[in-house]
Structure formats: structure tokens, C-alpha cells
Nucleic acid binder design. Sequence first.
DNA 1: CGGTATCCAAACCGATACTG
DNA 2: CAGTATCGGTTTGGATACCG
Lengths: 110, 110
Amino acid sequence: MLVLTALLDRSYRFSELRREIGGVSEKMLAQTLQTLERDGFVHRNARPVIPPHVDYTVTDMGREAGERMRAMIQWVDDRMSAVVDARAAYDRVRAERDAATEAPPVARTR
Amino acid sequence: MLVLTALLDRSYRFSELRREIGGVSEKMLAQTLQTLERDGFVHRNARPVIPPHVDYTVTDMGREAGERMRAMIQWVDDRMSAVVDARAAYDRVRAERDAATEAPPVARTR
DNA sequence: CGGTATCCAAACCGATACTG
DNA sequence: CAGTATCGGTTTGGATACCG
């Protein structure tokens, strides 16, 4: 998801990518990159130097996927507030209904 | 995902939707529908008759999301074979490398 | 019919320690 | 630097039983 969108702009090294994305553990990033590589979305270029230098780029298919991801993220982002509102409305109604069943309206405080 | 795309065509009742999608447990469908309703993607219309009759439709936002989902599913579907191929190639290479490390090529059977 | 409640095994994932 | 290996807590989701 975020790996593919990040790699749209330029290639990244492992730790660099980890910092860029943020909140992703080493393990998850390694796992994700392996899957993406295996499935043909990402290309892994390992230069056998010391210290190791590995950078990741998107393949053509990966670029296509990343662009779609980016568009989808944008769409979701644009609708976030609508979702938050819908959620609040839904929760408010449900809270009112629960209050009515648990404590019948006999008298209100003040 | 599949709930939204199914509901693009017409409204569905609970069990009907379950059959349509296939491989989804009651629990998961109920959970999914509640989330979608809460977030404003789906509208739930419960007619208080016996036996109960509840049908689900998409909201405007849900329709938009469903259309995007459908497009994405189509895209993924179109690339499935490419992914399968990439995966096979990757696994083949890895298997060869593993074989080389575990059993050095001294002699081959026949 | 359209769910909810409960139990439980499997999968997920972060933290930590270690390696080439 | 770029990972792998392992442990353990959390989450997920199916199966089953029950309810209005």
C-alpha cells in the first residue's frame, strides 16, 4: 500500500523506506517487500558491498498499482470527514436508543 | 469489498447476499454490514414483519466506493496471471539456489 | 429470517536478539 | 546495513448455539 506509493517517486533503501513510511516494523517491511517482489510489483537491487546496499524500485506493474493506490488513498482521504460524520450520527442514534431501553424516561436531572 | 460491488446492481436481503458472495460466515457478513452502515456506505432497511425482512442498499457514497472497488477488482483480475507467473519464476529461482547450497553439484542422477 | 453471544484455534504483528 | 529467528500478546474469524 504505502510502500508502492512511496516508491512511485524514487527508489528507496530498506531503512530509508522504513523511516519514510513510519510506524512499520522491520519485520513487516521485510515481509511486505518480499511479497511485493515475489509477485512482481517491486524490484530488489542488492549491491554486494560492505555494508550491504539494497534499493527497491517499482516494476511497471508496480507503478500502475501504486498509481491506483495513490488515487484510492486520495479518495478515501477526501471522504474521511463524511465517514466520521456518518459514524457520529449512527453512534448518537444508537446511544439514544440504548439509553431509552435501559433507563425509561421518568425524570431528567435538572 | 464484494458486498459493495454486489449491491451496485440491486438491493439484497441478508441471506441472499450471503449466498451471492459465497464463503462468508454469518458473523463476518453481519459485522461487515454494520461497519458499512455505520460509516455511511450502506443503508439498512428493516421491515418489521414476521418473518423479518431486511434489505440493504448502497448510499451514494457507497455506490461511488463500489464502482471503484469493481474497477480495482477488474484490474487485479486482469493481472492475476502475470502475478502467478512472477511468483512461479521467483519460486523457481529460489528453489534452484536452495538446492545448490544444500546439495553441491557433485553428480546428478542419470 | 436475521441476527447475537460465546468459545477457541489460527494468523498476525511488534519487540527483541542475533547474523552475514 | 539489511535483514532472519523466535517469542508472546492481540486480533481475527469460523463453528456452534441461541434469540426476537
